[in-house]
């Protein structure tokens, strides 16, 4: 679990996970295209994410494809959120979104 939190404590690595969340199964080159980082830096970040089991890798021929693996985050959520809390939190998140949209705010 330490590895998961360490892996998530970096904006570039979170950006890589966001990119996979938007489009799963990208190659290293595809992931590099969306970020202002060198190929080596992206490869290094991906290795950390893979080590933390936040990214799963599949080989398709000679191409290595990266997939967002939500299981460790899910396990963290299961550890601290009961099922009733989860339902209330979802309602709160929806309320927050609606109120902020009504104010005309542009932030998430």
């Amino acid at each position: 679990m330490d590895e998961v939190f360490k892996a998530l404590a970096d904006a570039s690595r979170r950006a890589l996970l966001d990119s996979l969340h938007a489009r799963n199964g990208q190659s290293l080159s595809e992931l590099c295209a969306g970020l202002q980082l060198t190929r080596q830096a992206v490869a290094k970040h991906l290795a950390v994410l893979e080590q933390a089991n936040l990214v799963a890798v599949l080989w398709r021929g000679r191409e290595k494809l990266h997939f967002l693996n939500p299981v460790p985050i899910h396990e963290i959520a299961e550890r601290w959120l009961g099922k009733y809390e989860r339902h209330r939190l979802r309602l709160l998140a929806q309320l927050k979104q609606r109120l902020e949209a009504a104010e005309g705010g542009t932030e998430e």
Binding site: A56, F67, V71
Partner: peptide, 9 residues
């Protein structure tokens, strides 16, 4: 179109 999940047990 696929997803890949990994867990260690």
């Amino acid at each position: 179109n696929r997803f890949v999940y990994v867990t260690y047990i």
